[in-house]
């Protein structure tokens, strides 16, 4: 399988109005399949959230990761995504999340590590343009002098690769640590998060509004790889709404690793 290049594809941007957590989970599955089936061109999707949630990774234990009482108390929904990786705490406006959906040939022959770095090279470029001395930190983080900026996750299916990333814009660390049970083993890595009231590497290092950072990131992607504005098709929205209801809102999936 020959490797393809970013510029081989007519990249589309999807940046829809705020949507609920389960629908976001479903859109990742549907759009990956649509790109795999070549019904949709490769796509950059920027997420907007309509409600707070915890998103746990495909292989994480629900009760090990989430304090269910604290989540209920704060009105925070818990959803599970289709990719591995760690839990993230989302309140509208506190993070920047995006997904890339591409044919697997874009990363063919690459190991996991190389593929992660390759898919996010444009973001490192964008962050440098915003004045942040950011770098890719194996296995799957984007780091900066002020701490971890983002975590990435990938999964592959039907010949397509899904790469999605959540970046910390301005997170309420106290609430996050109430809702997420961060394991003893992991706590040493997160010492900076527990000491600070806010985890805000993007806000504090740019002084920019979240929307302005997103705009600069989109502009960087467009410059490097080409990008035309697109939208979700009615068929895709219908598939995703059905999948959100039948899978991503249900205990059978959310507690698949109890």
């Amino acid at each position: 399988m020959n490797r393809s290049d970013w510029r081989d594809y007519p990249w589309r941007l999807v940046h829809a109005a705020p949507q609920p957590p389960a629908l976001h989970m479903a859109l990742d599955e549907v759009l990956t399949e649509e790109v795999a089936a070549r019904r949709r061109p490769p796509t950059l999707r920027v997420w907007e959230w309509s409600s707070p949630c915890v998103v746990i990774g495909r292989f994480q234990s629900l009760r090990n990761e989430v304090d269910a009482d604290a989540a209920r108390r704060h009105g925070i929904e818990v959803v599970r995504r289709i990719s591995g990786g760690g839990a993230m705490f989302v309140e509208p406006g506190n993070t920047i999340t995006y997904s890339l959906y591409a044919p697997e040939t874009l990363v063919s022959g690459m190991g996991f590590q190389e593929a992660y770095e390759f898919m996010d090279a444009w973001v490192i470029h964008a962050l440098h343009g915003l004045g942040i001395d950011a770098w890719y930190q194996p296995l799957n983080d984007i780091a900066s002098p002020a701490g971890k900026i983002a975590g990435a996750a990938q999964t592959r299916r039907s010949g397509a690769v899904l790469h999605h990333v959540t970046m910390a814009y301005d997170i309420d660390a106290g609430k996050m640590l109430e809702v997420l049970r961060i394991g003893r083993e992991k706590l040493s890595d997160k010492a900076t998060a527990s000491a600070a009231k806010r985890v805000d590497p993007l806000r504090s290092q740019t002084g920019l509004a979240r929307a302005d950072i997103i705009e600069r990131m989109i502009a960087t992607f467009r410059d490097l790889h080409g990008l035309a504005t697109g939208k979700l098709e009615p068929r895709e929205l219908e598939l995703a709404a059905n999948l959100a209801a039948s899978k991503f809102s249900r205990t059978a999936w959310t507690s698949i690793v109890p």
Partner: peptide, 30 residues
């Protein structure tokens, strides 16, 4: 150089039972 791995299990008659491995790692296929 990797991720967190969690094991929840019981032992019955000296054998592992109810084994649940979890963590923030990556596996293909899931």
């Amino acid at each position: 150089g990797g991720k967190l791995i969690v094991a929840d299990l019981d032992v019955r008659n000296g054998n592992l039972t109810g084994v649940r491995i979890s963590g923030d790692f990556f596996l293909e296929p899931d």
